[in-house]
Computed example of a mutant assay.
Amino acid sequence: MQEQTIKINGKAISHFDFINAMQSYAMEMFHKTVDQLTAEETEQVQEIAIERIIARELIFQQALAEGVVPGDEEVNKETTKVMANFPSPEEFYATLEKAGIDRDSYYRMIRQDLSINMMTEKITSSAPEPSEEEIKAFYDANPDKMHKPTQVRASHILVKATDENREEAKTKIADVEQQVKAGDLSFGALAKEHSVCPSKEKGGDLGFFGPGSMVKEFEKVAFSLKPGETSDIVETPFGYHLIQVTDRQEEVLLSYDEVKPQIITFLKEQTGAKLLHEWVEKLKQKAEITFDN
């Protein structure tokens, strides 16, 4: 990937920030890391990353101009929340160090994120509540969206595979598959022992999920299984899986009253997003944005 510098009103976006954005949107759009993307997918992700980086920086610059900035207490609270996902504060800071991020830089990143969120909320909160007529019209016009899609509940065992250990990983998952078939230990017990997914702590249980929640290879197999059935070995970009479906909820039609709160939220968010987009476009028109390869 060719390195380029984006400058927004004289502020340069680092290549580090650009690559981080690429990784985030690659996972969001395709459930893949950047190095797993096809050339076409890479181009799509790159376009989105550039567009959103510019929008984020413009929002942040405007937030600073208007004094929409979180205090130290809010920054520390958000940092504590993130830190809770790590075994200890020491491991959290060690992880930052491995990523090349010192404490001051991390606090600046958190402050920027919070400022952007606060400024975004300031703009979108002016969106009006939809009328009863608008809500009912949306319900009537979108019958295909008024269903709760089929969901499955599944557990899995993941053996991570890389180019360096692929044969070893194949051998290991095949051995685990034989243990599942033997039935001496439960699927959950084997997941706790062999899986590298965080879900191993819950016996591999991923809970209920619907279409689009998992990578396509995993999803296709999971939705083809009946409760109680276990898959053959499934390969995804993350490695090799064994999947066991434990429950299934078929698609159901939802009544107007059931979905009305969600429709209100959706319509208001839609209006808010339109307001934000129009506001950012005005900022873009006034901004000086350059690209240097």
Rank of each mutant, 00 (worst) to 15 (best):
M1E: 04
M1H: 05
M1F: 07
Q2M: 13
E3V: 00
I6G: 06
I6E: 03
I8K: 06
N9H: 09
F16L: 12
N20W: 04
Q23C: 10
Q23S: 14
Y25F: 09
Y25Q: 09
E28V: 11
E28R: 10
M29E: 11
H31D: 07
L37H: 13
Q44K: 13
Q44Y: 08
A49L: 05
I54Q: 03
A55W: 00
I59M: 09
A63R: 08
E66G: 03
V69F: 14
G71M: 10
D72G: 12
E73D: 15
E74P: 03
E74H: 10
V75M: 09
N85I: 00
P89C: 13
E91S: 12
Y93M: 12
Y93E: 14
Y93N: 10
D113V: 00
D113C: 08
L114H: 02
S115L: 04
I116N: 03
N117L: 05
T120H: 01
E121T: 13
E121M: 11
S125P: 00
S126A: 15
S131Q: 10
E132A: 15
I135F: 13
F138D: 13
Y139E: 13
P143M: 01
K145V: 06
H147P: 07
H147D: 09
K148H: 02
H156R: 06
V159L: 06
V159E: 06
A161F: 02
T162M: 13
E168W: 05
E168G: 13
E168C: 00
I173F: 06
E177S: 11
Q178W: 11
Q179L: 14
V180W: 05
L185C: 10
S186D: 06
G188Q: 11
G188N: 05
G188S: 04
E193D: 10
H194Q: 01
H194S: 05
S195W: 05
C197G: 01
C197N: 13
S199F: 11
S199H: 14
K202C: 03
G204K: 00
L206V: 01
F209A: 07
P211C: 06
P211Q: 12
G212W: 02
V215K: 09
F218N: 01
V221D: 02
A222H: 04
K226G: 02
P227W: 08
E229N: 13
E229M: 03
T236E: 08
P237Q: 12
Y240A: 08
H241W: 01
L242T: 02
I243P: 01
Q244G: 09
D247M: 06
D247L: 07
Q249G: 09
L253R: 04
Y256Q: 01
Y256A: 06
E258P: 10
V259S: 08
Q262E: 15
T265V: 15
T265L: 15
F266P: 05
K268W: 07
Q270F: 11
A273R: 15
L276G: 07
H277S: 12
H277Y: 10
E281C: 02
Q285T: 12
I289D: 08
T290P: 02
F291V: 02
